[in-house]
Amino acid sequence: MIQIYPYDSEGFFLGQPETLNPDPVTGQYKIPENATSIPPVKDGQGMWRPWFDSKKQEWIEKADQKYKDSVKGPADPPSALDQLKAQCAATMVHLAEAQNLIESQAKMIADLFLMLAEGGEA
């Protein structure tokens, strides 16, 4: 039993390998015309849109960047941890702003008390 890689009439890989059993009489494998035993890989990596060149007996990558981008889809949404980190950062900014406001109000109150102690004139 071997794996074969079928392709369509234009030469593009159909997406799933198939299992081929040997002929029960001869024991030989009869690979169909629209398939090969060569896996659709290049430099040990899979391909986006493999096309089989039957003359050269090799798979060729036919996907351009536009095709790859269309297959990738939208970016993953942020994880729950990333959302919590963003909320924590926003809370820290608000806390720092509130602390600054408290400090400026405390200074203002201290200045007012000082003015009252000196006779109330500004």
Rank of each mutant, 00 (worst) to 15 (best):
P32A: 11
D53E: 06
Q45T: 13
F12I: 04
S54N: 14
L95R: 14
T91R: 13
I2T: 13
L101R: 08
D8H: 07
R49N: 14
S104P: 00
K42H: 11
Q65R: 12
V71Y: 00
L84Q: 14
T19A: 10
P17N: 08
V93A: 14
A122S: 10
S54C: 07
D82Q: 15
K42C: 12
D23Q: 09
A98F: 10
P22V: 11
K72Q: 10
V41G: 05
D8P: 01
P40G: 01
P22T: 11
P17V: 03
P32K: 06
M115L: 09
E118C: 05
G120R: 04
A63T: 05
I102S: 09
K85L: 02
K72Y: 08
L114M: 13
A98Q: 07
E121K: 02
Y7P: 00
A75W: 04
Q45W: 08
P50W: 01
S37C: 05
K55C: 04
Q57T: 05
S79D: 07
S79N: 08
E33I: 00
D111T: 06
E10K: 10
Q3C: 08
E103W: 06
S54W: 08
S9Y: 04
L14W: 03
C88A: 11
D8V: 02
P40D: 03
E97V: 14
S54K: 15
G73F: 05
A89S: 14
A35V: 04
P6I: 03
D69V: 03
K66P: 01
N21H: 10
R49E: 15
Q57V: 04
D76Q: 10
F12Q: 00
S54E: 14
A75S: 15
A86Y: 10
L84Y: 10
W48L: 08
Q105P: 00
S70C: 06
E33Y: 05
P40S: 07
Y67C: 06
Y5N: 02
D23H: 13
W48R: 05
S70P: 00
S70Y: 01
I31D: 01
V41D: 05
T36C: 07
M92Q: 15
G120C: 10
V41H: 13
P39N: 08
G15Q: 05
V25N: 01
A63W: 00
I31R: 00
E103C: 09
S104K: 08
G44C: 09
K107I: 07
Q87A: 15
K66W: 08
I4C: 01
T91C: 11
Y29E: 06
L95P: 00
G11Y: 01
A117S: 14
W51Y: 15
A86T: 12
S9I: 03
V25D: 03
E118L: 08
V41T: 12
A106V: 12
A96C: 03
A89G: 10
K56P: 02
W48K: 04
S37H: 07
A80T: 13
E33G: 01
I31L: 02
G73Y: 03
I60T: 07
L116M: 07
Q57L: 09
V93P: 02
A122G: 09
G73N: 06
N34Q: 12
A86W: 10
N100K: 12
T36G: 02
P50C: 13
D53I: 03
A80M: 05
F113N: 08
Q57A: 15
E121W: 03
